[in-house]
Design a protein around this nucleic acid. Structure first.
Lengths: 344, 344
DNA sequence: ACTTTTGTTGTGAACGTTAACGCACTTTAA
DNA sequence: TTAAAGTGCGTTAACGTTCACAACAAAAGT
């Protein structure tokens, strides 16, 4: 392995000069710079990260800006799991992580959280921009020197380092295919869109409908519900949906809020008759999956999103490696039979 | 962060003594050892890996003992992809990887490969023990000081560091469930076991049959084929299977050799009528999956197996961290709609 | 002709860990 | 009894990188 010392020797300069060239810190004459540059390229020099980090041994501080973990049926606990895992692995690398949680439904709460994040003197920020309008403005205010990575969803025109998330439309297409396999005969399907203003929701539904559009035997019917879906409320909806469609064979729920619907179907002893496809490996969903009430859950790999998010920040900020601008998460199909292998 | 220096200060000894305690290198009195141990625990000391590796800066050499990548329908190219990825990420960490390929069907070839591996002065070995009888003997001959990790399959009573692979039985169960969903009416299903002596094959078939045993509407029929399955040979088998069962609605192939069967079904224009479930994301399988001839592929996460295998070796050998004795790979369900997200 | 500034380069300490070495002392063997 | 071997500890150089600082010369300002 080539070292700075070796380069210095070949260029007849000191290691200090080589260092200045490497880091563009000026104070080197053009000719020397050129000479050193050539030798660096020629020898394909790569800095020894152990030595670099030993010397620097700076504590890096990352922030995570995301909704309260209790919201969205505790969905947000999943990425936190992954973040915690990454945090443990990076313990020796002096990475500190601070959470800035906000209430999805309160702009004030978000402002408080984001202000705190800005004041925290962070080296990097991982954020889930679930409230579109608010975040459009917010990303403009992020200081230039603070690199940030989106997970879950993203703001298109922002100057982000990377976006880690799922292709929502295609996950809807996948759900369509699965639903088609599940219901064989002519049938009506309900698509339930809780909180239709949230990211993903629309894209997932569009994907689902676009797939089934090519198929004549299934007629989907969409229901928008502007609430996070309490169990009583879901009871009402489910009943009205069942009454609406005498030939209802399946329900597609476009987010993690699948379990209350499952509970209703179960309580009406319709499990197996009305198939359910939903999202995300939260505890309650898993319970109904194992009971056979939910047929398929599509996973966003939420845990991995958190894990990869932190690692991408680490690579970008600490190791100064380049990270992919887009990390597509797999569209995992989870059933009763394989769910146990998806929980760490 | 606690350092050796700090521990030495608190214990009133030199850093040399602390180092000896940490590495059990003797030459320390019982009392001092105890005292230092207590302080180490108390402060939750963790060595700085940057400093350690900077100092050591030894080049580590790992070996990979596995079948020729061309065998099993080029299945083995998949783990190699993952190994290569890990190799690139560990470039700066001075990890060198040497392959020792063998012909699955030649014991001589295996002996040559394994001897070469033993002579190569390795720091760790990653191996896929696909030929059971031969490997039972082989693992006894591995020198004590050479740590090894199994991937794909494993030898039960060996002294391995970790085994990375899939739960074959359960993957059969999963295939059973999917098959049940695919074929609705009373139907006959063929289970094709190519190379029934290979690992996995039996377990997968058992899992499949055990699931369908609880279900009366599907009657499975097993076919054992003691060949890797040339296209002509598969033609014969497929025809005889179709002739055998007038009500054939599905075929379950227990390994990567799914594509020749798919080709036959396609050429007979039976795609969609006879459903196919198979294994592994090799190129040809993916083609038939996208064409709609294969309904589901179950992935062993072969790429990840290679990747994690190398990293587990790295963690065990280089970082001296503890690694899990068993790393279960997920049972990924792959369809036409999500396959693109499973290829890096 | 002098100080001051600017430009270019070299020097050396520090980061935390490892392990060889040396010193003083004690035990064992011939 | 005396050399050899063993025990318990401290000291120190080295790994490769970073960066503050010193050193010196040349150019610019007074």
């Amino acid at each position: 392995m080539t070292t700075i010392k070796e380069i210095a020797r070949r260029a007849n300069v000191s290691i200090g000069t080589v260092d200045r060239v490497l880091h563009n810190r000026g104070r080197v004459s053009k000719e020397t710079k050129e000479k050193v540059r050539r030798i660096i390229e020629q020898l394909d020099y790569r800095p020894n990260i152990f030595a670099r980090n030993l010397k620097l041994s700076k504590a890096f501080s990352f922030g995570v800006l995301m909704p309260n973990p209790s919201q969205d049926s505790k969905y947000w606990e999943l990425p936190i799991k992954g973040i915690t895992k990454a945090q443990n692995e990076l313990l020796a690398h002096k990475v500190r992580i601070t959470y800035f949680h906000y209430d999805k439904y309160s702009e004030n709460s978000f402002k408080r959280a984001s202000n705190a994040a800005f004041k925290a003197n962070l080296d990097g920020l991982l954020l889930a921009p679930v409230v579109s309008e608010v975040f459009d403005k917010f990303v403009q205010e992020i200081p230039d020197h603070l690199p940030y990575i989106f997970f879950d969803s993203f703001v298109p025109n922002a100057n982000y380092v990377s976006y880690i998330g799922q292709d929502s439309f295609q996950s809807g297409v996948l759900a369509g295919r699965l639903m088609e396999i599940l219901v064989k005969e002519k049938a009506t399907i309900a698509v339930i869109k809780f909180l239709p203003r949230d990211y993903h929701i629309d894209d997932r539904a569009s994907g689902f409908l676009s797939y089934l559009g090519e198929n004549s035997k299934i007629s989907p019917k969409t229901y928008e519900v502007d609430s996070s879906g309490s169990i009583e409320y879901c009871q009402q909806i489910t009943e009205s949906i069942i009454n609406d469609n005498q030939n209802l064979c399946g329900i597609y729920v476009t987010n993690a809020n699948t379990h209350p619907i499952a509970e209703c179907i179960k309580s009406k002893s319709l499990a197996g008759k009305i198939h359910i496809i939903g999202y995300d490996l939260i505890e309650e969903n898993i319970r109904y999956l194992k009971e056979g009430v939910i047929d398929f859950l599509i996973s966003q790999m939420s845990e991995k999103q958190g894990y990869e998010g932190v690692f991408a920040l680490y690579k970008h900020v600490v190791l100064k490696e380049t990270v992919n601008k887009r990390m597509r998460m797999q569209l995992d199909i989870i059933t009763k039979e394989n769910v146990d292998y998806y929980q760490s």
